[in-house]
Amino acid sequence: MIFQLGGTLLDACVLAVLNQEDTYGYVLTQRVREIVDISESTLYPVLRRLQKDGCLTTYDEPYQGRNRRYYRITELGKNRLDSYKSEWTDYKDKVDQVLLGGKRGE
């Protein structure tokens, strides 16, 4: 992917994946890496920040004698995801207008 994605879009992607189902760090990272070119260790600071902001909670589940820490989106997180979605739609429309040559004001 040649387009660079910034921090906010990364937040939005994490929230969107978690909005579908609760999951743990490894799977979350793989899902986000499908669309954003990040290194595998990048998500922890993002998750930590979203958790401190109250957008995520965590719970542990045992798996093969060790723990998996699952992340779950909160109501606040869902609200934030909604506002990201509408911002994204606005932005995408504007980019389409310029890049694909649509008409202004339609």
Partner: peptide, 30 residues
């Protein structure tokens, strides 16, 4: 933080072998 990365390495089945820092990223950056 350490638990997260221990879990991650376990899930990714990363053992004693040297890891690819370009893929994983650097601890200093995190």
């Amino acid at each position: 933080a350490i638990n997260y990365y221990e879990e991650y390495f376990d899930e990714a089945a990363i053992g004693y072998a040297p890891i690819n820092l370009n893929e994983i990223g650097r601890p200093a950056v995190i």
